[in-house]
Nucleic acid binder design. Structure first.
Ligand code: MN
Ligand code: MN
Ligand code: ZN
Ligand code: ZN
Lengths: 143, 143
DNA sequence: TTGAAATTGATAAACCGTCTCAAAAGGAAT
DNA sequence: ATTCCTTTTGAGACGGTTTATCAATTTCAA
């Protein structure tokens, strides 16, 4: 029995609903993905090269995008490459990013979210999504 | 006497400090840039093609990046292309973006900024910059 | 006016992610 | 287990955006 029973269930349900198939590659990528908070396709490509040297980069991109559609992942554009954020066991959140060491801290702040809604309403907008990223130095890198 | 006396002064001061030269192209691009709130390099390339058909796209990218260094512009990554934001006559601000028609509304909210600082402090971070973008539908597009 | 240094324009290259397509694999029905 | 249709895969081509290269041109201080 796998460690990631619940998430595998979510994926299989999505696959079933869309006439998609459960493959060895998808299982492999899901396992690797659920071990991280954020990961890029390239990072995963290198990690998995040990387990399966023939796994293609395109397959990793395709599969991570599939996870986004299944609600397990969310694509974030922090730096130059897309980070796939493991949201399987957590709700909406935003990020603090250290520009020196790359450390990423997740946070949630209801007050900020509420004020965002106020701003939107005042301007006649209905918010669908948002991105809030705070860039700076973490405590280690400040010294 | 040009319409953009102040901004031209800012640019010339930056050029002076860095042993850079004041060229016809830089003047042309500055004038076009200051007429917009946000513009992409490609858009400016097409606009200026009338005034100077030989102006190269690389020069536009180089010059807009120069404006960023001089503090006149700020690069923003809303969609697929980089938007250069004219910040010469305004301070920091964030954006509401309509995902349907592309309309962009600028806003400032001190309360949000203060809460961001609180979040950062609580996590040991010192913020240098941030990005806050609210995506949704404007009043026209909601109907 | 001269000449060293910066700039320009054309285009190649880098970068990241998606598309293409023939071969392989999944899986439902038999 | 076999069949057979559909989906998936891997390799590499491709596309859009931005930067790098480099010879020719321009700037500007002496
Ligand atoms: Mn996250
Ligand atoms: Mn703006
Ligand atoms: Zn750090
Ligand atoms: Zn709109």
């Amino acid at each position: 029995m796998s460690k990631h029973q619940k998430e595998m269930g979510v994926l299989k349900e999505h696959l079933g609903k869309h006439q998609l198939k459960y493959t060895r590659q998808r299982e492999l990528i899901l396992d690797a993905f659920l071990k991280q908070e954020h990961i890029t396709a390239e990072e995963m490509y290198h990690q998995l090269a040990r387990k399966d040297p023939h796994l293609g980069l395109a397959t990793i991109y395709r599969t991570l995008n599939l996870f986004c559609e299944a609600g397990l992942a969310q694509a974030r554009h922090f730096g130059t490459q897309t980070q796939y954020d493991n949201i399987s066991h957590k709700g909406h959140h935003d990020h603090l990013i250290c520009t020196d060491c790359g450390k990423i801290v997740e946070f949630e702040n209801c007050d900020i979210e509420r004020l965002q809604e106020e701003v939107a309403t005042r301007n006649g907008f209905t918010i669908k999504t948002h991105r809030l990223e705070l860039y700076g130095l973490c405590s280690r890198c400040r010294h």
